[in-house]
Simulated scan of single mutants.
Amino acid sequence: MEKSFELAEVKDRKKAQYASYNLKDESSYWWESSKAFLEGETISWQKFMELFLEKYFPSYMQDQLEVRFLDLKQENLTVAEYEVKFSELARFVPKYVNTEAKKAKRFQQVLKPWICSQVALLERRTYAALVQKAMIVEGEREATKRESEGKKRKF
């Protein structure tokens, strides 16, 4: 919704109306009953979001996603697979990744130890640069492994 509002340049006072118009089925019924309790009150976008998130993204779910983010480790994922999961969960816990430095640091901390030690030698400029460097390190190791396996077979 936020992206749509930005594109259409919707003013704050109209956002709740536009968002509620797009609700369907159960969420539409929920909104109609919620609105009845707020009769006469002007419903701001902030209030709408608060009510919506309370209903569809309650704090216990937020807590579960935070725990999943904090428990996330690369383990047997490739760097690319790990980055997808990291990005997917990071959007729910902005306090841990609200700067480039925090995001890059957290990503690096739970990489496989051999990748982490290699990228630790490099300056961590941005999250994107760190991910790219980790992928390069991983790719180089895989190439080296294939090369050494090929030499063993020839012997």
Rank of each mutant, 00 (worst) to 15 (best):
F5I: 07
E6F: 13
L7R: 15
K11L: 12
K15T: 11
A16S: 15
Q17C: 06
S20C: 05
D25H: 13
Y29Q: 13
S34K: 11
A36Y: 07
A36P: 00
I43T: 03
Q46I: 02
K47A: 05
M49I: 11
E50K: 10
E50R: 09
F52W: 15
L53W: 02
K55G: 00
S59E: 13
S59L: 11
Y60A: 03
D63G: 08
V67M: 12
F69Q: 08
L70G: 03
L70P: 01
K73I: 11
K73Y: 05
Q74T: 04
Q74Y: 06
E75K: 13
L77C: 08
V79K: 06
E81Y: 04
Y82P: 06
F86A: 04
F86C: 06
F86V: 06
F86T: 01
S87M: 12
S87D: 15
E88Y: 12
L89N: 05
L89I: 05
A90S: 15
F92M: 05
V93Y: 07
T99C: 03
E100K: 05
E100G: 02
A101F: 09
K102F: 03
K103R: 15
F107A: 02
F107H: 03
Q109A: 12
V110P: 00
P113N: 07
I115K: 04
A120G: 04
L121R: 14
L122V: 10
E123W: 00
T126F: 03
Y127T: 02
V131N: 01
V131R: 03
A134F: 02
E138C: 04
E138T: 05
E140A: 09
E147W: 07
K151P: 00
R153K: 13
K154C: 00
